[in-house]
Amino acid sequence: MKILVCISKTPDTTAKIAFTDNNTKFATEGVQWIINPYDEWYALVRAIELKEKDPTTVLHLVNVGGAENDAIIRKALALGGDEAIRVNIESQDSFTIASQIAQVAKDGGYDLVFTGKETIDYNGSSIGGMVAELLDWSYVSLATKLDIEGSNVKLTREIEGGEENVETSLPLVVSAQKGMAEQRIPNMKGIMGARTKPLKVVEPVAAEALTSIAGFELPPAKAGVKLVPADNPEELVRLLHEEAKVI
């Protein structure tokens, strides 16, 4: 079986969110970059587990972006995976990124494509579904469990207020979230090994962006907290009822 895991680079969860160029660009100065947590903790680790169970599995990673992404790709390779592919194009919108990944998936003859449930920067949760549609494959999103038996795949996905068990077959695109696997910390052997794993750079296919970002804004600052004394919690209930009118 051939598995492809999509790896996105995102700002660290504690990064200061600010904008430049008249609020049209994210201010990257001083920002630490990480592998998008959903891609790393859930999608990639589950794929690694599948390879550990069946060592004949081929596991590749894919990233869409410039050479500045290579450090993050090597970090992901330190966790696992045989090689990585970077499609050399500045990412524009979800559709252009998905078009690149779909092409890589098609060319490489993969059976299973993993994404994280969303990236923590653009929160689009779009790439997996778009890739699936472009390939005409099944798509199970927000999955918390995945097991493969031959070409049959059993998954659990989130629904409102619970979960649903589903069955489908390969080829398949899955978006992974909490429950799918447990976060792993790369070890020394992994980090050393990642340096020599192949990182192939491929040129993009033509794809037109459907959306663009016209500008950013920060939410209005909070007015400040109204503190209620601890010996009079009844006052809090009154305020929520009469002033905030939420209960």
Binding site: F95, K117, M130, A132, R157, E160
Partner: peptide, 20 residues
């Protein structure tokens, strides 16, 4: 949960820009 699976597929199918 439904829209997160359906919206992107529809977007790619119709080549219609999606605001998720």
């Amino acid at each position: 949960v439904t829209g997160k699976a359906l919206g992107p597929r529809l977007s790619a199918r119709l080549r219609a820009g999606l605001v998720a």
